[in-house]
Design a protein around this nucleic acid. Structure first.
Length: 526
RNA sequence: GCACCCGUAGUUCAAUUGGAUAGAAUAUCAGAUUCCGGUUCUGGGGGUUACAGGUUCGAGUCCUGUCGGGUGCACCA
């Protein structure tokens, strides 16, 4: 059913009601009252009008009201026939009208696409990975959502620019660089027979292992040095236990427990910050920021490995991007906008020089926008990139596909841009999606419970192949086409599995059951 | 403590955004098919939509409260 046919009938209904009921009272009819929905299959008819809104103005029972409207439409030859069930008016369209619709749909190459108007430019940001480890199932949800939304927007009349903001800078990158150097600095994806992103990921894990040990040791040492904690025989266990208890709503900590927890947390933070590996990583970041050539060369080399790895994964998923933004380019952006905001008095500076935005009147909080040493924060940067993108593209709509843990961040970001007075600030949208969970709970890279994207894709293709061959459905297709077939079956199962659940809700993935190819699943769609 | 999100068959998810008797898949049970406790078909059972109020002609959907689960509250990203 095209929108024109629907619209025609909607207008006809509106006119009919106007002529029927307006003689007695003046009503302003709103199109929203005339939402026509497809008739349920257990009733006769094509479209259904809910007549309850008009019962009062008709001064009749729902059945009578529906009858009046139906009769009027019939008289005007808008419909073939009608029937009434309670307050529901089921309309049967003339066969000719349907036939015409069908014929014009056949003619129309773009059927189902809304090219009726140019809706402008829509920028969709998704994927946005860190460059220190491979993509996992959480990214897959993000990527498929972003890609699908882009496709939907393109089909509905937007010019879509798909973009990704690559987080390629910061201590976390330095961690894998450091571990790489420690391991001799000679390995390459080729020599190790690994995808670049996986190789770099290994070094990140290697760093973390050493770092954890250092922290544990330091923690123990510091605890022994403190009078209050020296007597504890298992301070690490105590800390874990207490923080678990503190986050549990049902149990409350008593005063001495609270005090102990605070001390232990303080010591733990100190140990984390002062572990030799962390100090070394920070030092490396400073070198990076100072433009040290050796550090930059290593950084470029490893990042390129990761990019090559990512592009293989993207290709396997059948997605792509039009532009990339790199945080190493954008991280300084936004500072002049903070100045602008301060001079406009929508932001303010504290005596130490840090810049803030006060949103307490909006029910939010105070938010730091710039550090006292003048360097940029996540928020500073995001303000900058938004403005930059508006300059680059002139977008009419900017969609961020980002997990729902960052709901607050985007609320503040949008408010900040509004306060700066940008007219396009209300065209920003955070497509917030829920986490992908395993039966044991959240995926945690530290505990090795992440579902790797490449492994998952490979498994899907493998399963598709096995099932298809077992059913003997390959016939005598050439091998190349068989591969193509397994790919589309396997990928469709994966994509449907991910996309069928409401993006806002968290979703469950059970690796032991593997994604189904039977029943209500992807392979049956095409 | 404060803020935001979520609670729907045993399980994983729907429900045209406030419309008709809350639907699928899967699991389960019964029957058919059969070299098979596998596969494939057919049919059945399975629900006080977490709970209690309210608004409405009409509520899974909106409002209030309670309970349960999650996330966020850094001069990290």
């Amino acid at each position: 059913m095209t929108s024109t046919l629907l619209q025609q009938l909607q207008e006809a209904c509106m006119k009919a009601c106007h002529d029927l009921f307006n003689s007695r009272h003046q009503h302003i009819f709103q199109p929203a009252w005339f939402e026509l929905s497809p008739t349920r299959k257990e009733f006769e008819g094509d479209l259904t009008l809910v007549v309850f809104p008009f019962v009062k103005m008709a001064g009749a029972s729902p059945e009578q009201t529906a009858g009046l409207i139906g009769e009027e439409l019939l008289q005007r030859r808008e419909i073939e026939k009608y029937n009434v069930v309670k307050g529901f008016l089921n309309l049967t369209l003339p066969a000719v009208a349907l036939e015409n619709e069908f014929l014009s749909a056949l003619q129309n190459h773009d059927f189902g696409f809304d090219k009726s108007e140019e809706k402008g430019i829509s920028v969709v940001e998704y994927s946005s990975p860190n460059t220190n480890k491979p993509l996992h199932l959480g990214h897959v949800r993000n990527i498929l959502l972003g890609h699908s939304v882009s496709a939907l927007l393109a089909h509905s009349g937007y010019k879509v620019i798909k973009t990704s903001l690559v987080n390629d800078r910061g201590v976390h990158i330095c961690k894998s660089m450091l571990a790489y150097k420690r391991a001799g600095g000679r390995d390459t994806p080729e020599s190790m027979g690994l995808k670049g992103d996986h190789l770099v990921g290994h070094f990140y894990v290697a760093f973390d292992k050493v770092y954890k040990q250092e922290v544990a040791q330091l923690f123990k040492q510091y605890c022994a040095e403190h009078a209050e904690t020296a007597a504890l025989d298992n301070p690490a266990g105590q800390l874990k236990e207490l923080s678990a208890k503190a986050s549990d709503k049902k149990s409350a900590l008593d005063v001495s427990e609270k005090l102990l927890l605070r001390q232990l947390t303080e010591i733990s933070n100190k140990a984390e910050a002062e572990a030799p590996s962390m100090l070394e990583a920070r030092e490396m970041l400073l070198k990076w920021e100072a433009g040290d050539e050796e550090t930059l060369a290593l950084w470029r080399k490893m990042n390129n490995w990761v990019y090559e790895g990512f592009s293989v994964t993207y290709q396997a998923l059948g997605v792509n991007f039009d532009t990339f933004y790199y945080e190493s380019d954008t991280y300084k952006l936004g500072k002049n906008l903070i100045d602008e905001g301060v001079s406009k008095e929508v932001f303010y500076r504290k005596p130490d020089g840090s810049a803030w935005l006060d949103l307490r009147t909006d029910g939010l909080d105070e938010k730091c926008l710039q550090r006292s040493d003048g360097t940029a924060l996540y928020m500073t940067q995001d303000i900058g990139t938004a403005v930059e993108r508006q300059k680059d593209t002139g977008f009419n709509q900017l969609i961020y596909v980002v997990g729902n843990e960052q709901d607050y961040h985007f609320k503040v970001l949008f408010r900040a841009l509004q306060k700066l007075g940008y007219a396009w600030a209300d065209k920003l949208y955070h497509l917030s999606y829920g986490m992908v969970e395993l039966p044991e709970g959240k995926m945690k890279s530290r505990e090795g419970t992440v579902v790797d994207a490449d492994d998952l894709i490979e498994e899907m293709l493998h399963n598709a192949e096995e099932i298809t061959k077992e059913l003997g459905k390959t016939g005598d297709l050439p091998e190349q086409e068989q591969k193509q077939l397994f790919r589309s079956i396997g990928l469709s199962a994966l994509k449907y599995f991910i996309l069928k659940v409401d993006p806002r809700k968290k979703m469950l993935f059970n690796p032991r059951e593997s994604i189904d190819f039977h029943g209500h699943t992807g392979p049956f769609i095409l």
